[in-house]
Design a protein around this nucleic acid. Structure first.
Lengths: 116, 116
DNA sequence: AGTTTGCACAACCACATGGTTGTGCAAGCG
DNA sequence: CGCTTGCACAACCATGTGGTTGTGCAAACT
């Protein structure tokens, strides 16, 4: 129905889901563990997980009664590729890797931003 | 209302809008020029442009009766930063920044896990 | 002057999204 | 065995989204 890129982008277009992904970056977690920091029901988080799963940003295993979530790392590559392509085209700057990394580090330093 | 990152991501989560951006990468264009390749009305494209404008991915000038669209290149940097950060964390790549991030990740993985 | 061009605003529509409550069900625990 | 835990499914609701048609209006053309 919808193309992969759109699915991933729209999955990322929600602070709650991005926070979930960040949480999962620190290790796998169960639904309840993921739901705990948010002021919403477990069912709502379940919905978000379904969105992430559909975008193949996470995958889930059925381990007994818990369904731990695992990041699917490759999914971001397509998105990063798209972004990078256009960023370079638009900016017209053929930045070398060093500049790129410097920018990333700067971006990381001013973190705390939007991830919630 | 909504955070910047979500605005940009959701603006990018539509094939039409991404195509518009690609078109604009080759140079500024008017609304009608942008609308021409799509099987939709000029008004629909206008709506898409408003979304892109709200996400500050494009800016518009009022030149006489036409309203040419120009890419706002900086907006993608935040998104690219977010993507790159997480992609590298998850994938555990191999440059200096990556090792730094991997160390961070390992340190953070050391706690949590059982609690929550 | 009158007409055409380029665009935006408004109202409307169908459907998606993000949340809720209520419920059910399989796995583990007392 | 019965209770609790962990999660998903269904129905519902409010709002957002992506499209349409209809209209209006300012600038440019003749």
């Amino acid at each position: 129905m919808e193309d992969e890129l759109s699915l991933v982008f729209s999955a990322l277009a929600d602070p709650t889901r991005r926070a979930i992904l960040e949480r999962l970056a620190h290790g796998d977690a169960t639904v309840n563990q993921l739901a705990e920091p948010f002021a919403m029901t477990q069912q709502a988080v379940s919905k978000h997980l379904k969105v992430l799963e559909r975008a193949r940003l996470i995958s889930r295993t059925r381990t007994a009664q818990s369904r731990p979530c695992v990041l699917d790392t490759e999914r971001l590559d397509a998105v990063a590729g798209w972004i990078e392509r256009h960023r370079r085209i638009w900016a017209g700057r053929h930045d070398r890797l060093d500049q790129h990394l410097a920018a990333l580090q700067a971006a990381q330093r001013r973190d705390g931003e939007t991830t919630r």
